[in-house]
């Protein structure tokens, strides 16, 4: 409402112009003073309005955080620090520990980023530097489309295509043919639903985020930077490696963070593929749980107040972890851009 008032006020000032006898020099000092006065008041109202809107967003965030915290408080008070470290999640006996879900969220997101980041940067580099012009738009469009596929569709595809392939081909291949089974990460029976499956589906889901941000950032690298490297005798690849990527580095990290945020909170597809078992296992072949899937699975049929409160507490932990991850990532971007000298020392 205030916005509308301001815009009519602003529109008003040019309209009054023709009423002055003849253009600018006819604006006497008094008249000019009044106009400046009006503009100042308009500015004040306008800035007050946008400040208010801007403050609403963090206020909402804090409100949500407080709500979830209060909801989770009974469980947190009851179990204390062991809520974060205990693996016991037993609604029947009323014992709750969220460690497996926290572990699962972090590990599945880490797998997703480890797979998606190099792929996404590769896709972005291909699209911005190497692809012939006619191929760029269609491929970029298709990659971006990956982000538009509903989560549950990924889940279905994962259940009917990815899991059988993992169980029959990929897992035995990694474990037996490559003898990676000696490592704890690739040992144990291959059922299909597993941390690996969840990480893989997440990597496909976060790839478009990382790659489209990276592509934008790469395209925004000034031509003068490329020319500088070329003129110094760099090959195309050396130009990309030595001038383009370093210039784009902080932006690309920003894209990775966006993907990470997405991976941490993703619920549906992961729930369908991770096996939903509250256990911590070093093997990526073993099933696990994530915080988001835990909440989604149990919230509707929570048995009793303590169970509900424990789920709220899990939500609060997820919220805090997301905040921490984002803070770390922001700090990283800042470090990188400072080292690269984007901000003058």
């Amino acid at each position: 409402m205030t916005g509308a008032a301001v815009s009519s006020e602003q529109a008003g000032s040019p309209r009054e112009r023709p009423t002055t006898p003849s253009g600018a020099d006819a604006l006497g000092p008094k008249r000019l003073g009044a106009r400046i006065q009006g503009a100042v008041i308009g500015d004040r109202i306008y800035s007050a309005a946008i400040t208010l809107f801007a403050l609403c967003v963090p206020a909402l965030l804090i409100l949500v955080a407080v709500e979830i915290f209060l909801g989770g408080w009974p469980a947190l008070r009851r179990f204390g620090f062991s809520f974060l470290t205990s693996s016991a999640w037993d609604p029947v006996n009323g014992v709750f520990g969220a460690a497996p879900a926290i572990y699962g969220t972090l590990v599945s997101s880490a797998i997703a980023l480890a797979i998606a980041t190099p792929l996404a940067i590769g896709v972005a580099l291909f699209l911005s530097e190497f692809a012939p012009q006619w191929l760029r738009q269609p491929v970029a469009f298709l990659v971006d489309l990956l982000a538009a596929v509903p989560s549950v569709v990924y889940g279905l595809w994962g259940v009917f295509v990815l899991l059988p392939v993992l169980r029959i081909t990929v897992m035995p291949f990694l474990r037996d043919t490559l003898h990676l089974g000696v490592l704890p990460f690739f040992s144990g029976p291959a059922y299909g639903p597993s941390m690996l499956a969840a990480g893989l589906i997440l990597s496909i889901m976060v790839l478009p985020y990382i790659s489209s941000v990276s592509r934008e950032v790469l395209l925004a690298v000034p031509r003068s930077q490329r020319e500088a490297a070329l003129a110094l005798g760099a090959t195309k690849w050396e130009t990309i490696w030595g001038a383009v990527l370093p210039y784009a580095k902080s932006g690309i990290i920003g894209g990775v963070i966006l993907g990470l945020g997405r991976a941490l909170g993703e619920t549906m597809a992961v729930t369908m593929l991770i096996g939903n078992r509250p256990q911590i296992s070093a093997s990526l072949f073993a099933p696990g749980y994530t915080m988001a899937s835990l909440i989604a699975n149990e919230f509707a049929e929570a048995s009793g107040d303590l169970h509900l409160s424990a789920l709220m507490a899990v939500g609060f932990v997820l919220f805090v972890i997301t905040l921490i991850v984002n803070a770390i990532a922001r700090w990283l971007v800042w470090q990188v851009s400072r080292a690269g000298g984007e901000k003058t020392a």
């Binding site: 000034p222 003068s224 020319e227």
Partner: peptide, 8 residues
């Protein structure tokens, strides 16, 4: 070049 283009 016309516009200095130091690397960051």
């Amino acid at each position: 070049f016309q516009r200095w283009n130091c690397f960051p």
